[in-house]
Structures are given as C-alpha cells and as structure tokens.
Design a protein around this nucleic acid. Sequence first.
DNA 1: TTGTAAGCGTTATCAC
DNA 2: GTGATAACGCTTACAA
Lengths: 351, 351
Amino acid sequence: MADHSQSVDRITVSASTTPKIKDVARVAGVSTATVSRALSKPDSVAANTRQVVLDAARVTGYRINQAARNLRQQKSGAVVVLVPNLGNPFFSQILAGIESTLAKRGLSVLMVDTKQSELPSEYLHHSRADGIIALDGSLPGTLLAEIQSGIGTPPIVFACEWDPDDMFPSVRVNNRHGAALAIEHLVELGHRNIGYVGGPPANVLTGARLEGVQRALQANNCAVCEQWLFQGDFSLQSGAHVAAQWLAMDNRPTALFCANDEMALGVISHLHRSGVNVPRDLSIVGFDDIDVARFFLPPLTTIRQPRSKLGTESADLLMEKLEHGLISDSRSETVLPVEMVVRQSTARIAN
Amino acid sequence: MADHSQSVDRITVSASTTPKIKDVARVAGVSTATVSRALSKPDSVAANTRQVVLDAARVTGYRINQAARNLRQQKSGAVVVLVPNLGNPFFSQILAGIESTLAKRGLSVLMVDTKQSELPSEYLHHSRADGIIALDGSLPGTLLAEIQSGIGTPPIVFACEWDPDDMFPSVRVNNRHGAALAIEHLVELGHRNIGYVGGPPANVLTGARLEGVQRALQANNCAVCEQWLFQGDFSLQSGAHVAAQWLAMDNRPTALFCANDEMALGVISHLHRSGVNVPRDLSIVGFDDIDVARFFLPPLTTIRQPRSKLGTESADLLMEKLEHGLISDSRSETVLPVEMVVRQSTARIAN
DNA sequence: TTGTAAGCGTTATCAC
DNA sequence: GTGATAACGCTTACAA
C-alpha cells in the first residue's frame, strides 16, 4: 500500500508559474491557513500534517512571497543602512559587522549611499525598512525631524559621533579621548609643537577630535597654534597635500596628529619622497588603525577603533529597539573603547 | 473666497496612523484610483486634478507603502548583491558603483555577505529581488542550478571572472591578460626567475591570473618553477608570510607578481624590515591598484583594474536585462580593460 | 488542531 | 479623465 508521501509525490504540478500557498495547500490536501502555519509556526500544527505540508512545499518548489508577507505583517524584514560614502573602505568592516548581525536574525540589509543619492527620504518609511542605522551624523535636518516625529518612521540608531544631548540612540567611540591619547603620547615623547590634520570642517569627527586635541594640548601647557591646524578631507591625497604645506612652513610643528590613517599615510608618503624622514624629522599619529597601518613603512602609530564591533553593536542595539518596540526609552548611548597603538611613526623628539 | 488649496489645508487629518491612499483621496475629493494615477503616472490625469492630489498628499504627509506596491506589481524594487566578503575593502568601490547606478533608477540595494550567511537561497526569489549581481563565482552549485532554471528567480549578472562557456552574463576584466602584462613588464626589466603569489587555490581569480602567468612565462621562455608558486589568501598578512618563505629559500626568484595589491604590500613590508630592499633586491608587481598603492614606499607597480566601472557596468547590464525582460539572449560578456601602472617597486635586474 | 474569511494598501481593468 | 472593483499572496482572528 502506498504511503502518504508517495501519493503526494505523484501529483503533477504545473511548473509554468511560481507556486503559491494555494498550490501547496491543494497538493497537501489542507487549507492555506494550515500551510501558512506549518511553515511559519511549525509547533502550532500536528506533526503529521506538518510533514505532509513540508513535503508538498518541497515537491511544488514553493517559495514564500515576501511582498505579500510584508504587506500582511506590516514589516519589511529589512534594515536600511545610511553610509556617507560606500566607496570608503573605512566603512567596509562596520558594514560587515552590521550585515552578519542582522543576517542572523533574518533581516536583510539595504545600503544607501547618502553622498550619491540625494533623497533617501522614501527609505525612512516603515514599509521600506523596519529600522535604520546611520553611519554618520550629516543627515539633512528635515529628515531628522521626520524621524524624530516617529510617525511613519522606524527606529534609528546612529553608529557614529553624534550630538551628545540628542534623542537618538547611538554607538560610538570616544573621539575626544582618542585624540587626547594621541596628543599625550606625543607629549610624552617630548613634543611641544604639535599640529592637527582634520577632515572637512563640518564633519563631526573632525570637530570631536579637534576638541580632544585642544583640551589635551592645554592640559599639557602646549600652544594651540592656529597655523598648525591643517585641513584635509580624509583622503591619502589630502594628506600628501598637507605634507606639502608643512614643508613650506617656516615654523613647523615637530609632530602631527591626523584625524584618520589615510591622511597620515599620505603625509608620510609625500614627506619621504621629499627626503624628510618619519619619525626622525616629524612624528605622525593616525586614527582608526586600518589594516595597512601596521604594514606601512614605517608602521603607523595610531588610535585603534573597533570597526567591526561598531557594526555589530549598533545592529544589536537596533534589534533591541525593534523587539521592545518603541516603548523602551529611546535614549541610550554605547561608547566603545579606543586604544593607543604605538608603532614606528613616532619617536622621541631630537634635540 | 477661499481657494481650493486653502480648503484642503483646513481639513484636519488624524495623525495617529500613517496616511494611505484612501485618506489622500478623501482629502482631495477624488477616487483612490485617481490618486494612484496622479502620483505614479502624472500625465494620465488632468492638470488641476493632479495639483489637488499632490496638495492633498503633501498635507496628509502621505508616503507610499512599498510593500503594497510590490505585491501588486510583482516587483521588489530591489537588487541583491552577493559579496564574498563585505569586510574586504576591495569591494567597496565596486559596491559604490553599483549603488549609484541602481539608485538613479530607483532601485535599492540589498547586500548579502556570502561568506557569513550560509543560505541566501531565499534572496533569489523575485519577490525579494528584481535582479542579482554576484561579485564572485563561488556560489553553491545548487543555487546556480536554481537560478539557471529561471523559474522563480530574477536575472543575474556576474561581476567577476567566470567560467567562459557559462550561460550567465558577466562583466569582468581580463585577468589572464593583466597577469601577462605584469610578467612581460618584469621580463622587459631583465627578470627570468619570476614567482607568483596567488590567493586561495579554489579562487577563480587565483586560477585565471596563474594561467596568464604561465602562458606569459612560457611565451618568454622562462622557467615555470613550482617552488615559486606561493599561496596566500589576498591579505596583507599572507603577503608577509610569503616574504618569510622567500627569505628562507636557497633558490630565490628575482621578481614576484602578486595576485593582489594587499599581498604585494605585505611582502614589501616584511622584506623591508628584514633589510631586503624592494626593488633593488626583489621586484614586486601587484594587481588592482588600490588607493594606497601609489602612496606606499616604494610606490607599487601594479595592474589597474577599474573597480568603480566594474560596478556601474554590471549594474547597467543588469538593468538592461530587467528592461528587455528575459527575452533578450542572456549570454553576454563585457570585458573591461586593465592597465599596467609602472611605479617604483620594480627595477631592472642587477647583474 | 484545522478551516473560513477578512483584510494588508496598492494598481490594473473595465466601464462610464 | 475618472470611478468602482477586483485582484496581488499571505496571515490571523474567529469559528468549528
């Protein structure tokens, strides 16, 4: 006598179109509701029914239609990640951290480059995304207001420096402290004339790290010389440009703290070609500890930032918000530690 | 007498829930069908009606519900991008190219890290994605079969080296040619003993570039020495490891072609610390021309690959497939040019 | 435990 | 040019 699974197998399914729950139901000989339950809440259905349904789903090649489920459940199953510049490798590890964490929970990751596309406003609707992770604070104020109103917008988490008394949850590192560590390291090596290479002036990181620099310099009774505050744009090229400026100066600082590693490497590279030796003639400290930092020549002294963890923590924080609903107080701030990594681009000052 | 827009403004809308088309219709005094048309096909509606609807939409703060639209239109408005390793900065520029191109057409980008999440099978359903871009060829055969059947799966484009007689469209660079360029450059500098540093053996890039190396060596009557075929994993660290192996050899090659820039930099870095000078004692060629290559010390000679263009072209190709439907023959292959970039990590052989 | 049936918010078809 | 209405494929009260 033929067992059940065989009789199921024998039913021919028209393969011209993608099978729907209705088709599975017909093959399994149950209602669509039962199929739905068997697939999404297996425990709510009898064991043998479940097996019949699963077999039928396999036989028909059934795949759930996400759009239909999303509409019905009023969710999107996705989180949108706002990246200032996808092409910047600095973000790749953060993104990897976010992706792995969200993927574990079955959420998909929608990436939006805020530099390129002008209007991510549509993404901030909960029919598009169940949540938002923003990797920088430079979002248009109108969008922020929209998010803040919280009317049709999903919860947001900032994975970056952000206005401290703001009302959005965030995961970040202490940039002021990191910058101060860099300055203190240089002071310990005997430097008193210390310059700072920032990114774009409007950038929050530029500002926060500059603050740390200024505080630390003052705390150590070092002059804060306007002329030694250089402006880059976080690129290698801009670092090289700063190096050229430094070369042209009468009154040079003996050490430079750069707001990121790329600029630091750009400085070293340009100086080396001009016959200036780092660290002998100038000490350089970077920020981030990108992969290539420890392989550069000389290996770069820098402030390490846990990029992958920034990603995983911000994703975790967002999911907490998602699960607890908006009920839990939305204010919360995780500050991850930075770490001084001393290599060979800094040296005791010659005298 | 109050004009229309004012009377519209005066209507109070309950803000407790996000407005739907029905609400806009009520405010505008038209049917839901007209609202839908006015918003998505403005030309199909009378000018003044359109204005009334747009005003009503603005007043109510209406945002389209993507889930509903997706279900109705049987599209997802998204493209899924399969990335072998999101944390690898090499991909970031490709991703940026993909994102910018797709964003222009109103498509969103779903990123999936194929190394981390085991089962992206669900993503290959057209209720999830209208199309797929794969950044490497190492997808499970079962998935490929599924895609190939084309039953419920969207069109796919490979942005990578791929089996030449395969049936999927692809955008790639000529890796064999690039590798050959590197070898020829070294041969011109007088090198006869040339080694190759590959990535993981199973990797398609490793294989393709190795082929190019072997052909070029043979064409130039150079020995292909098994011992000089090193194995790395594309990381800086693995480059350093290869350098250590090279140092320990009796019979050293005088030049090394590395399958990517990171490994090349790792080699140089390690050698330099061991007192070996590049290019004096060993010439090094990389592949990719990552940003830091030209700022390294010495600046790296390498084969440039147009990463951003790989992204934009693959996205363009995919959209072509999307618009022309599956009718157009799916076989097609775009090969982008690579370029030899001579810097200072290679030199004429000493004798 | 299972079936029935009412939506989720849009858009496409068909009248008018 | 516009309005009524029937899907799109799924989930979930509610009933049985």
